[in-house]
Design a protein around this nucleic acid. Structure first.
Lengths: 352, 352
DNA sequence: AATCGCCTGTAAACCGATTTATTTGACTTC
DNA sequence: GAAGTCAAATAAATCGGTTTACAGGCGATT
């Protein structure tokens, strides 16, 4: 009946998984018909479809997800490259995108670049080897070194969070400039005139945007404000060192706005070391909302990125791009919520 | 020359990736020889190996990782199931295991169970569909519902972190009881006589062990100690509610030992709400080391799990199990470092 | 009744590698 | 010089599905 590819039942061990050939045999149809039923192709008689479904049940057959995609040159896998799994902001993105991808029958393979461009390139190569159907990348640097390679492979790709200005891929991020501007205006309106802004690295697009937002807001303020920008590096160690050095000098700012999590941790450490009162002697605000910020005493004001919406926007854009490779590029910017908490207050008159 | 499986060059588009057939043709050898060279099999003449490597270079050929594993029924993929990507403790485990697996030529597919046994079972089924070569699971509950299914598939599996007592799989975790006992003794020796211990759910094996460590230490103390155990649930919301309820009642403990991160956050929130001084009015200690704990003022004492060592132990055990399915089961317990920080002090005399 | 088109169903090719079984050829040995 | 040995090379089968191309059956149209 079934000539080629036929299994020799004699050598099958009990534990081996059934294949479509087993299902076909049991349902007394051809493997091609089984395949059709499994893929939901309608050109199958109801009677046959029924028998196939029964056989699937009885054998508790499950399709080999990889073999099923072998013949097309793109698999139902999407890759996600994050800079660091230990950052809960990225963790939340991973969790959310995984959920969404799964709903559409895609498997998410999340890998990390460890904030290194070389590792990122290697991960991209590895994912290309797995013939992923698409990629979501939070670039380690502003430039995405493998851009040319990815275009050559015509790989559907969405850049998330750190979206460079000119790059021929879809991008999803937040309105960094707007959020930071709002925070600066708030400091100004409370009477702060000396603000320290801590960024990680100027080459990260989102950092650049946040700094731009700070600068633009500063120019439009009613009263002039002295804004000092400090680049503290990506890691907590370097951020702590840089911040400690700054806090050893006078004059101290009346407020600090840290544009990334390690900066926020570093400034808290420095403030602790100098035994300054928050917000009495110094006000602080951070970026991204972590649970511990709300249990601090006082709670730390921050810019809250809409994580779930970011994840959804990135996934939907990728899904669209996979189905329609030739549509024009899309840039999406979601807006943040700026939450003013107890860590911000008017500066003491003495400090004015 | 090559009869079956031969590509028709005419229909090849430029962007398509080269296959071993392309490499074979260019190197003027058979695809089987190319395969041998790629896998490092030595029964190839140096001259041929050289030509194959050249051809690989010239075509910039990369092997299809999935197709390469198609013929064996286990792929060079290992799955990792974590309860929650947003917890940096799990995030660090993911990052570390990914790195180790990659070194050995395995791809890690990390997925989350969202702390739900049903989701966990579904994820396990999905990973089985991908014919993963092995699994590392941090179970959502104490029981690992799919245990029978996994044994039936003879799936190499290592249980990590939350290791049940009797389960027929390898297990890697920390010495929870010992670490907790040390912390309890420390509280005792400082003079604390009323300790609140906050756990998430009694059914989690690691929680049970931690509680057992607390109880055993308590019995062996020189002076009797009043130990109150509070189950606060897994999420931050439920933990906060339960903790707030407890703090509304007298008498308050002189010290709190929280056995999981959400508990620590919850107790910090409750202490903030009641405006208690740490460690003046109440001492606290937590479990797991997060960066923010050290920048708190005072820094939060905690039990530090050796994350990197845990990851390495789990990976090495899995790798071993993949190669030797029949070796006897292994249980590994790594010891924690108990770090006494500024959040612990002797209780005020009035509270004694 | 013959022709046409449509709908089902299936054999066989295919995806890109690995693996088995066989062939080839160089080199010994008698 | 024939037979035997061994290593290297390769044709073909294989993994588990999808897809193509075609065959057969049926009803509608002429």
């Amino acid at each position: 009946m079934i000539a080629s590819n036929q299994r020799k039942e004699s050598v099958r061990v009990a534990a081996a998984r059934p294949t479509i050939y087993d299902v076909a045999q049991r349902a007394r149809v051809s493997p091609a018909t089984v395949s059709k039923v499994l893929r939901g192709v309608t050109t199958v008689s109801p009677a046959n479809a029924e028998r196939v479904n029964e056989a699937v049940q009885e054998l508790s057959y499950r399709r080999d997800a990889l073999a099923a995609n072998l013949r097309r040159n793109r698999r139902a896998i999407v890759g996600l490259i994050v800079p660091d799994f230990r950052n809960p902001f990225f963790g939340a993105l991973v969790a959310e995108i995984e959920r969404l991808a799964e709903e559409q029958g895609f498997r998410l393979v999340a890998v990390s670049s460890s904030e290194s461009a070389e590792k990122e390139a290697a991960q991209i190569e590895a994912l290309l080897d797995w013939r992923v159907g698409g990629l979501i990348v939070i670039p380690a640097t502003g430039q995405l070194a493998s851009a040319a390679r990815l275009r050559q492979e015509a790989m559907p790709l969405v850049i998330l969070d750190r979206v460079p200005d000119r790059i021929p891929f879809d991008g999803v991020g937040v309105d960094n400039a707007e959020a930071c501007a709002a925070m600066v205006r708030h400091f100004h309106d409370l009477g702060h005139r000396r603000l320290l802004v801590a960024a990680s690295l100027p080459r990260l697009p989102n950092m650049a945007e946040r700094l731009r937002g700070v600068a633009e807001a500063a120019e439009a303020l009613a009263q002039p404000m002295d804004i000092e920008t400090l680049f503290c590096g990506a890691g907590l160690d370097s951020a702590s060192r840089t911040m400690a050095r700054r806090f050893a000098e006078a004059p101290l700012p009346t407020a600090v706005f840290t544009l990334y999590i390690q900066g926020t941790l570093a400034v808290l450490r420095a403030i602790g070391a100098h035994d300054l009162a928050i917000p009495g002697e110094i006000s602080i605000a951070g970026f991204d909302d972590f649970e511990w910020m709300q249990v601090m005493h006082p709670p730390v004001a921050t810019v809250i990125q809409p994580v779930a919406k970011l994840a959804r926007a990135a996934w939907e854009q990728l899904h669209l791009r996979i189905d329609h490779p030739l549509e024009p590029l899309v840039r999406r910017r979601l807006s943040c919520r700026v939450e003013f908490r107890g860590s911000i207050a008017a500066p003491r008159p003495a400090h004015r």
